[in-house]
Design a protein around this nucleic acid. Structure first.
Lengths: 327, 327
DNA sequence: CGTCACTATGACAACGTTGTCTCCCCTCGG
DNA sequence: CCGAGGGGAGACAACGTTGTCATAGTGACG
């Protein structure tokens, strides 16, 4: 900036004025300064500006499990859209379902003085956030609640959705329904399992633990579970996949099976309608999730001091056919 | 920081020393400072630190067309992985295939003094980058080359891949092959069209312009194109989809068609193997693309001054069945 | 012609850090 | 007892900006 000032023959304050479109600069001077800026390729240092002005940095942080997972990338996109409308940039990070990594990312973002943080929490302990939140960094939890603190949260109706899935299958005559869930440490997985149980109860099906598998999904893990659940005289006639990753692995495991069970997945996914049979899912609007969370965050950024809110977004069963396969 | 200093009864410089793990601080003093930090919830301001040290900001910018598109989110993930290994955070932005927006994002990132920029360019003019690059911000172009400047670029073999697709279809007896491409303004689309032509030539097929459609993919657009291309006596017996979006729209348009043409897609996508018939694609390793670009960027960040490099990653045809449908 | 209002500009401090330099005090060898 | 040496700590400036205040020049008005 001082280089620009020297070249234009003015003080750096005048350059600052030009850069900030402040009035009270003579047009001729402004033009000289502009020319100097152009010539030197000057670009103001936003970091220094934010420091001096004590203003916000114009960034927010988004932490998800894996930015590469289509579910989270759709979320990312929705968040970005809102952030852009508020003139903010988005810093993203993948926690890899690791609470230490999550914490690291959050604290790093705080050190960068992001205006707010959106997080799909991996861990259950968020006490470390208390000082940051007290210091004025709003945090909104997405898809899963905070572990041990009270904070804004946007969730989907995991319980109701899974009950609906069970009911759908029961209505098509299924009594032996298997449930493939993610690790029970994950809130959504636990909640959906709870919904599965509740769904069984409501439909007069006795809950059979041997038909349930809860673990981090891998192709092999799902493959083995499928073999176990669908074999024998007491085999399951229907399967509920607890999330989009599990659904994909399950479909692949079933691709070459001789007898295909009915199936309902939780989370919609691309091409589900084009498979054979088309896959019935409990769908929810991921964009709406990101949208709601980001809107809530920016309300906080702009000073909303109301008590922490908990938003639960509805889900709906999209019957495409795979849930109507006869037992 | 001065609050911490006051509480601990030391100078702010000593606090700085503790925060930076500098030696020459008495353990007792350090402990007092730590306690004060803990009590006040102090977190050092990275912006101020970077300003003072004149060091890098520890961030890189990534600009893609749409962070929500699985193709780009996989890229994002790969970039993030490398960035993390270099201790950097990633700022992401979606250009929405709009060159003004792209430019805006790039300049914003530069103003934030990112250490480098990875961009899937939307526009064809990148002269605006020259001052930034001269000022020391390395830029690597991904998937498409820079418009009018020389810069590091990582591409995939669009030409070769499409030739391979045509050849595959020709080998299965197809002579009337349609090509559905994205807007010809997009480098990859133009390049794949070139490959399509070349593929026709090499396989002794006369290139028929009426079998080509190049435009931004929409469900309706693809639907109409399919109707037009697959009807009549001279109908195409095979279709090449120019990218993953087009492939999905095409599959949906074909889902209820009475006669299904053979098909090959460019870009692999999830579940392609589970469709009926399984979709043959020209696959390339998106992670490798991000990986290579990020590695190249960080080499530049760390001072590599060698001439701009152009990396072309190989593609390979994954024959799954949809390309082997008889004419 | 003196005063006033106003415009255009600059000097200076401050934002929160850290690098450099200096100072003080303690210990140890002679 | 003195001086050298080193460990521990602070004062101060500087990073690139911008807010505040001061100042010089200009024209209008009585």
């Amino acid at each position: 900036m001082s280089d620009v000032a020297r070249l234009a023959g003015v003080s750096i304050k005048t350059v600052s004025r030009v850069v900030n479109d402040e009035p009270a600069v003579h047009p001729d001077t402004a033009e000289r300064v502009m020319a100097a800026i152009e010539q030197l390729g000057f670009r103001r240092n936003l970091g220094a500006r934010n420091l001096r002005r004590g203003s916000t940095t114009g960034t927010i942080g988004l932490i998800v499990e894996d930015v590469g997972n289509p579910f989270y990338s759709e979320l990312n996109r929705a968040v970005e859209r809102i952030a852009t409308s508020f003139g903010r940039q988005v810093l993203t990070g993948s926690s890899e379902e690791n609470s230490d990594r999550e914490r690291e990312l959050v604290l790093e973002f705080c050190a960068r003085r992001v205006d707010g943080i959106l997080v799909v929490p991996a861990g259950l302990q968020h006490g470390y956030l208390v000082p940051e939140m007290r210091a004025g960094t709003p945090v909104v939890f997405i898809d899963r609640p905070a572990g041990d603190i009270v904070a804004d949260t946007v969730l989907v109706d995991n319980l109701g959705g899974t009950i609906e899935a069970v009911t759908h299958l029961a209505q098509h005559g299924h009594r032996r329904i298997a449930f493939l869930g993610d690790s029970p440490d994950i809130f959504t997985a636990a909640e959906r399992l709870r919904g599965f149980r509740e769904g069984c109860v409501r439909n007069g099906i006795s809950y059979d633990e041997s038909l349930v598998t809860m673990s981090t999904p891998t192709p092999d893990g799902i493959g083995n579970a499928v073999k176990r659940l669908l074999d024998g005289p007491d085999a399951a006639t229907a399967v509920i996949a607890g999330n989009n990753r599990i659904a994909v692995h399950l479909l692949r495991a079933l691709a070459h099976a001789e007898r295909r069970p009915a199936m309902v997945g939780f989370d919609d996914f691309e091409l589900a309608d084009l498979l054979n049979p088309p896959v019935t899912v409990v769908a929810h609007d991921v964009s709406a999730l990101g949208h709601a969370a980001a809107e809530l965050l920016f309300a906080r950024v702009q000073g909303d001091q109301s008590p922490p809110r908990k938003v639960v977004l509805p889900v709906h069963l999209v019957a495409r056919g795979s849930g109507e396969v006869a037992p």
